[in-house]
Amino acid sequence: MNKPKKKVSSDSRRQGKKAMRGQGIYYDEAKEPFRASLTPTVREKIDEEAKELMMTRSELLELIFRERYNLPLS
């Protein structure tokens, strides 16, 4: 009988790091609220990919742009 794969949440990357207001957990800077208007098609694609990678939309977009512009990932 095959056991279902254990899902690892994005919080596992945070292990050993305490959240402090105004300080970044994954990066050297804190995140700021940002709002964008997107078509339903693009939003669905972002949601699908984020779910597949077990991360939030915010984490996915941060990762995409950090990789695209060669910004530090940690």
Results as ranks from 00 to 15, higher is better:
residue 60 L to C: 13
residue 18 K to M: 12
residue 68 R to G: 00
residue 43 R to K: 09
residue 25 I to M: 03
residue 62 E to Q: 05
residue 29 E to W: 12
residue 29 E to H: 15
residue 22 G to P: 02
residue 67 E to M: 06
residue 7 K to W: 05
residue 53 L to S: 06
residue 61 L to F: 00
residue 57 R to V: 00
residue 43 R to E: 10
residue 11 D to P: 02
residue 59 E to L: 01
residue 45 K to G: 11
residue 6 K to Y: 10
residue 64 I to Q: 00
residue 58 S to M: 01
residue 56 T to P: 02
residue 72 P to V: 01
residue 68 R to I: 08
residue 53 L to H: 12
residue 62 E to N: 01
residue 69 Y to D: 03
residue 9 S to A: 09
residue 33 P to I: 06
residue 21 R to M: 12
residue 32 E to T: 15
residue 67 E to I: 12
residue 36 A to F: 02
residue 69 Y to I: 01
residue 20 M to A: 08
residue 36 A to L: 08
residue 43 R to S: 09
residue 2 N to S: 10
residue 56 T to C: 05
residue 60 L to H: 00
residue 71 L to V: 02
residue 30 A to V: 14
residue 21 R to N: 10
residue 67 E to D: 11
residue 29 E to M: 11
residue 62 E to C: 00
residue 66 R to G: 05
residue 10 S to E: 15
residue 13 R to Y: 11
residue 2 N to H: 15
residue 66 R to P: 02
residue 33 P to Y: 04
residue 27 Y to N: 06
residue 24 G to S: 08
residue 60 L to Y: 01
residue 52 E to L: 14
residue 74 S to M: 15
residue 59 E to G: 04
residue 58 S to A: 03
residue 33 P to R: 09
residue 73 L to Y: 00
residue 35 R to I: 07
residue 22 G to L: 04
residue 37 S to L: 07
residue 3 K to W: 05
residue 4 P to Y: 02
residue 32 E to W: 01
residue 72 P to I: 04
residue 11 D to E: 08
residue 65 F to Q: 01
residue 55 M to S: 12
residue 41 T to M: 04
residue 21 R to H: 13
residue 69 Y to Q: 03
residue 54 M to I: 15
residue 48 E to H: 14
residue 36 A to V: 13
residue 9 S to T: 12
residue 35 R to D: 02
residue 17 K to N: 05
residue 18 K to L: 07
residue 43 R to P: 04
residue 70 N to D: 12
residue 51 K to A: 06
residue 28 D to W: 11
residue 74 S to D: 12
residue 15 Q to I: 07
residue 4 P to N: 05
residue 68 R to W: 12
residue 41 T to W: 11
residue 9 S to H: 09
residue 18 K to W: 10
residue 26 Y to V: 13
residue 1 M to G: 09
residue 18 K to S: 07
residue 20 M to W: 07
residue 69 Y to C: 05
residue 69 Y to A: 03
residue 54 M to V: 15
residue 62 E to A: 01
residue 12 S to G: 02
residue 14 R to I: 15
residue 12 S to D: 06
residue 3 K to L: 12
